[in-house]
Nucleic acid binder design. Structure first.
Length: 271
DNA sequence: AACGAAACCTGCGCGC
DNA sequence: TGCGCGCAGGTTTCGT
């Protein structure tokens, strides 16, 4: 479930439920989720307390007393709060037993990762060492994008590059390009100042509006923490292949860009 | 060095 | 009904 707005929704919801609580026990049912040294992870995390939950790009940053627990949900990672004695269900891979509740990490495809990072090394260690600018960072400006987009890669690919801007995924990349009237196959180096300005402002605008609606819940994905977002009702192109463009009534097309399904309006987004 | 492809996993919907 | 294929909100690793 994870692009920036969905992760932000999880962060807010989770924060209300676990701040101030201590980790009494951790059960790891599928080791692949833990990207750090497994034994260190298990040992260090016991008796740590949740101080705060932040978000950087698509990463959830759980602030503990002495560490950051950094979690990436990848395609289908979800957190749930359950009763401690509830049965463990299929696809629950990491179970944190807190004083009065059970925090459970559920991930059908097992793609998600968790890292335990020293507090003074958050941006020095993996996975955040190369993280790009936050969409609302004031230094994310035309000059920055001119340099980073000076490439023969397609703009869709560049928008998905987390070391340039952090938090944009496949749904919002399509929406940002539609609103900016930029064809996904245009090359980064061919964009002009107006294009870059549009990308900067539309990225913030679309992500903000999605956060207001609790993110996007599409396909049959069940949502994290029982929270269902509604921004899918406002998507202009994503998953609308064969349907009429909301702006010009031409037919929305679907292509592949860098292996990712990409939706656009050939009339609004001329190459 | 830089690019696309494959890998990591599971489940669903489709056509035959 | 069953099988095989393609597809999925992501990122890292492997080959050419």
């Amino acid at each position: 479930m994870p692009e920036l707005p969905e992760v932000e929704t999880v962060r807010k919801t989770l924060k209300k439920q676990i701040i101030g609580k201590k980790i009494l026990k951790v059960d790891i049912l599928y080791n692949g989720i833990i990207a750090s040294n497994l034994n260190d992870f298990k040992k260090k995390i016991i008796n740590q307390e949740f101080i705060d939950i932040k978000r950087i790009g698509k990463y959830l940053i759980f602030e503990l007393n002495n560490y950051y627990l950094v979690s990436h949900l990848r395609m289908e990672g979800k957190f749930f709060i359950k009763n401690i004695d509830d049965d463990v269900v299929k696809h629950e891979h990491v179970i944190f037993t807190l004083s009065d509740v059970s925090l459970r990490y559920h991930d059908t495809r097992k793609f998600g990762k968790m890292y335990l990072v020293d507090k003074d090394k958050l941006f020095i260690d993996t996975p955040l060492i190369n993280i790009g600018k936050d969409p609302w960072d004031k230094s994310l400006n035309i000059d920055y994008l001119k340099e980073k987009f000076n490439s023969s890669k397609h703009i869709k690919t560049l928008l998905l590059d987390q070391s340039i801007i952090s938090g944009i995924g496949n749904i919002y990349a399509d929406e940002i390009l539609f609103k900016s009237k930029i064809n996904p196959l245009r090359l980064g180096k061919d964009l002009n100042d107006i294009d870059l300005l549009n990308i900067i402002s539309n990225t913030k605008d679309i992500l903000e509006r999605s956060i207001e609606h609790g993110g996007t819940t599409i396909r049959s994905y069940t949502s994290s923490l029982g929270v269902i977002g509604h921004f899918q009702d406002y998507l202009m192109v994503h998953q609308r292949e064969g349907m009429e463009c909301m702006m010009c009534h031409n037919i929305i097309k679907k292509i592949k860009v860098n292996g990712r399904g990409t939706y656009y309006c050939p009339n609004c987004q001329v190459k």
